[in-house]
């Protein structure tokens, strides 16, 4: 099968610091891929390079055969990459439903003027958006809270809402930055279920950063371990987690 994401020789420096060096990965369509490593290894930087927050100094990023290296965040999202954030970034003063509907923005169209004048196209499109958004919320068991302000959701549900919003942009590739951070074991188990479900249901490819080894070993098919900005190990999860180098650098003996 063709590679959904193909990264070669990716690198960036901040001042004199080599943050990411010669990063490479090949992720196939439909795969659930993990990116792990100690704090400060450059995992989130890889995400930021991938989504256009930073422009790489060198290297190539190809999404589904299309070169997206150095493009702007908006263009990369339109090309099919959506993400969540390590520190949750929701639209706090908007309702849960509107958070998801904001994610649908580029898939449903009517002009600002027809919105102000409440033309039939406004009503029709808004209705479709409502249905689609509610449908996504149902997947994450959030439909009951659709009216709540996002800020008032409990922590675990905020994480889920962020994933729902990312999925609303209809991505080919979903990047999850520590989705289980701050969750208790029950919530994590539930999240694992949801991630697996999303993978099957939406026909997407997932790359996730995670520190929770139970989650990583439970759902990731393959792993890349980063250490000091460089790839320390890569391959099928079970093999990587038994690699003596990985145990020494990250997992602990």
């Amino acid at each position: 099968m063709a590679d959904m994401l193909e990264i070669n020789n990716l690198g960036i420096s901040f001042g004199g610091l080599r943050e990411v060096d010669d990063f490479h990965v090949n992720i196939r369509q439909g795969e659930l891929y993990g990116l792990i490593g100690p704090n400060g290894a450059g995992k989130t930087t890889v995400f930021n390079l991938l989504t256009g927050v930073y422009r790489p100094d060198e290297g190539k990023i190809r999404l589904d055969g299309q070169d997206i290296t150095g493009k702007k965040t908006i263009e990369i999202n339109k090309a099919g990459v959506a993400r969540t954030f390590q520190n949750i970034r929701l639209f706090h003063q908007m309702s849960v439903l509107d958070n998801v509907k904001a994610g649908l923005h580029n898939h449903y169209h009517y002009s600002t003027m027809s919105g102000i004048l409440r033309l039939p196209v406004y009503r029709r499109t808004e209705k479709e958006m409502d249905e689609r958004a509610l449908h996504l919320l149902e997947v994450f068991d959030l439909a009951g809270e659709a009216d709540y302000l996002a800020a008032n959701l409990p922590y675990g549900k905020q994480r889920k809402l962020e994933i729902a919003r990312a999925l609303a942009t209809d991505p080919k590739m979903l990047l999850l930055d520590e989705p289980a951070a701050g969750m208790n074991p029950n919530e994590t188990a539930e999240l694992m279920e949801t991630i697996r479900y999303v993978l099957d249901r939406f026909h997407i490819t997932i790359l996730l950063i995670e520190h929770d080894m139970k989650l990583v070993s439970g759902i990731c098919e393959k792993l890349t371990v980063l250490n000091f900005g460089r790839v320390l190990a890569e391959g099928p999860t079970a093999e990587v987690l038994h690699d003596p180098e990985v145990i020494k650098a990250y997992l602990g003996e």
Binding site: T73, I74, F85, A102, H105, N106
Partner: peptide, 8 residues
């Protein structure tokens, strides 16, 4: 930042 990430 989140708004940009969803293509706004």
């Amino acid at each position: 930042i989140a708004a940009e990430s969803i293509g706004l």
